[in-house]
Nucleic acid binder design. Structure first.
Lengths: 398, 398
DNA sequence: ACCGAAATGAGGTACGCACCTCAAAAATGC
DNA sequence: GCATTTTTGAGGTGCGTACCTCATTTCGGT
């Protein structure tokens, strides 16, 4: 792909715009309506003329079709460079008349995080529908890898061009993913990586680094100690929890030896268990000063703290800016949230799936999902990924 | 604009994909190459048939042209809804043969921030060139609002369809922006808002909130005090500095009364001045424990600290993740960086300009630039917006 | 110089939509 | 019921590219 480089003005350039007028300006045959002035971009026909070859040859070069001499290829490429030609992707895609049906496969849980993610994907899918991309959300029973595998195996025949999957990497799932890829379907891992499946891409954050980030915040917020810190983790995506814990410990041990980090409490996704465990624990550890909640169950946690009269008295760091986390942050019940932008994640998913389906390169910078730190003070004004969907149903009919 | 809503599976839906098969599946007249299966989306012709009207009428309705009875409009819209039609924007834009020449106007300084921003805009412009958008970078002498105004006044006749502007809001500039808008050119403020110009949009962060964020971090990192904190600010964009300071003070006074925040030191963009001032100040304030660097000049600051043997001994918080800030963060010379994602900012700029030029609505969530907190532990692995440009010149020819 | 093979040219159709013109039909007013 | 206006239909062209076919030219080897 040959890109058009807008001329760059030197840093010491004068503040004059004149010399930036595009050289390739052509007179439109007929004047258009409105006051817009048009700068015609070079097309494939211009390349053909410039290179002194036929349109067919230009096409062969542009689309890497065989049967063109090296010399001719070079001539065409030179013309392309000379004219500053950029393929018009909208026209190209139209001509290809490609459309993309993608699947996003998520566990069927009621966790606010998964629901927010589903909403973000749905929103992104709506926008993407205008560019010939269709995204279907599929759910699987979270504790049933075989059902998931069965679902995945049905995808290729249902006309899907790509799959985004959020699931723990069990052997069954691993094989299912491999089978998908063997059939030519790109698979991207969502939120939690599937490192041993050969997935085409991972869209999410580095959980080890996220754990480290939580660690520094906890350590510094506690002033380096002394004190004790509780760590809670659900096991929906066990690997992620392990990595977060590892990152957290790494920093705490190295930089904050004065703080004692207690063993992880596994709450297995149950709110009741969590409340029980936390209450019990806090009774036994009276000088606990912080809690690192690695997984779900924030609601249960804040409730437990509330009941113990500890709301706002501990440094609480959790993951994922769900609606509840937002509220707790605003209310001072929790201190910081480590999160990822689900809107970005969803849009990135579609971009990556599409790029993989077309075998195109990615813009690594754009697809990089960042580990965000949210405090009450930098809470984004509008819901990040909200559960109220109908706020933006704007009409474009002018 | 009518959007196509991908069917949403209920949260309790079974894990079956079968019923998601699109109803509008048509048999392609001739089988295509490859194993892809095509799900044809409804087109304007389908609407015409479904609504029992002609193509011309559908077109009139879709493009809000006059001369159609209410009743007919409704019939068409019903058909659209029934078919789940979504306008193919790529085809629409192609047919309109619209192209967009945009200008990004930046001060011609050597600050790493402005340079990174310029690079980010250039990169975004390259990608956007494939969708009929051209972005030209223009620079103006930073201390010369009249030159800027003159530059701006020349834009409409140079065929520009929109302007993104990073500049302090002086009266001259304010008038120039108003004049642009009067001539129908959308103007978006970049990085620093231009609230009294009627600009169409502001792309950047809330500096007050950014200051507050810096405040919490400083306060908590210092354990609530006691201690003294220096505040440095250059005056390139004076309003931004004032807002950051205001936010910072707000939090410090309210939440960390034990910490004394000293008066802002204005360094006027000069590295030498900054070093001098900081050195002097630190000599007089021996129990200074933190520095909040609101503006440019990080290089000079770290150098001064180095010379004083204070590297890594103070809590230093600054703005903008420039290459130097990144290095200083990695080296432990500074503690935290409040920043905005310049890649996002640049892409957002183009999206917003284009939406404004077409008078289309925005996706507020996507255009929201976030206040990011970067610590050594959540430093994005690859340069955010780097100064090395040629790393990503990927070839798409398969 | 001749052959087969490779390279190139010429021209067409299609993609989905915007936008135009002109004629025909339907609705409206009186 | 007539004239007038409004609404609708039919059909065409073009946007920039992909992809196809078939003829023609050029090349490489002998």
């Amino acid at each position: 792909m040959h890109l058009f480089f807008p001329r760059r003005e030197g840093l010491s350039g004068a503040a004059s715009a004149e010399f930036l007028i595009d050289v390739h300006q052509r007179q439109p045959d007929s004047p258009r309506k409105g006051s817009e002035s048009f700068v015609m971009r070079p097309t494939v026909n211009d390349i053909a003329r410039e290179a002194g070859v036929s349109l067919a040859t230009v096409d062969r070069v542009l689309n890497a079709r065989p049967g063109v001499r090296e010399k001719t290829i070079k001539a065409v490429n030179d013309a392309i460079a000379r004219l500053g030609y950029v393929r018009d992707l909208t026209a190209a895609n139209l001509a290809r008349s490609r459309s993309y049906r993608m699947a996003a496969v998520l566990p069927d849980t009621e966790s606010q995080f998964v629901q927010s993610l589903a909403q973000a994907l749905t929103d992104a899918g709506q926008v993407a529908a205008t560019t010939r991309i269709e995204l279907n959300l599929l759910r699987f029973p979270p504790e049933d890898p075989h059902a998931l595998a069965a679902l995945l195996s049905r995808l290729p025949d249902s006309g899907y061009a790509g799959v985004a999957l959020m699931a723990p990497e069990t052997p069954v799932v691993r094989d299912a993913v491999r089978a998908l890829r063997a059939r030519g379907l790109p698979v991207v891992a969502l939120v939690s990586d599937l490192p041993n499946t050969g997935r085409d891409h991972f869209i999410g954050i580095d959980n080890r680094a996220a754990g480290r980030t939580a660690g520094v915040l906890m350590g510094r917020f506690l002033g380096g100690g002394p004190g004790q810190v509780l760590v809670l983790g659900s096991s929906l995506l066990a690997r992620d929890m392990v990595e977060r814990r590892r990152g957290f410990d790494e920093v705490m041990l190295r930089d904050f030896p004065g703080i004692e980090v207690l063993q992880s409490l596994e709450t297995h996704g149950s709110g009741r268990t969590l409340r029980q465990v936390v209450t019990e624990m806090l009774a036994n550890v009276p000088d606990a000063r912080g809690i690192y909640a690695m997984g779900d169950g924030l609601r249960a946690l804040t409730q437990a703290l509330e009941e113990l009269g500890l709301s706002g008295k501990l440094t609480v760091i959790c993951h994922e800016l769900t609606p509840h986390a937002r509220k707790a942050l605003e209310g001072g019940e929790i201190t910081a949230v480590i999160t990822q932008n689900l809107g970005h994640l969803a849009r990135s998913t579609l971009r990556v799936l599409r790029a993989k389906a077309d075998n195109l390169p990615l813009d690594a910078g754009q697809e990089q999902i960042r580990i965000e730190i949210v405090l009450r003070e930098n809470l984004p004004p509008r819901p990040d990924v909200s559960l109220d969907s109908d706020t933006d149903t704007t009409e474009a009919a002018a």
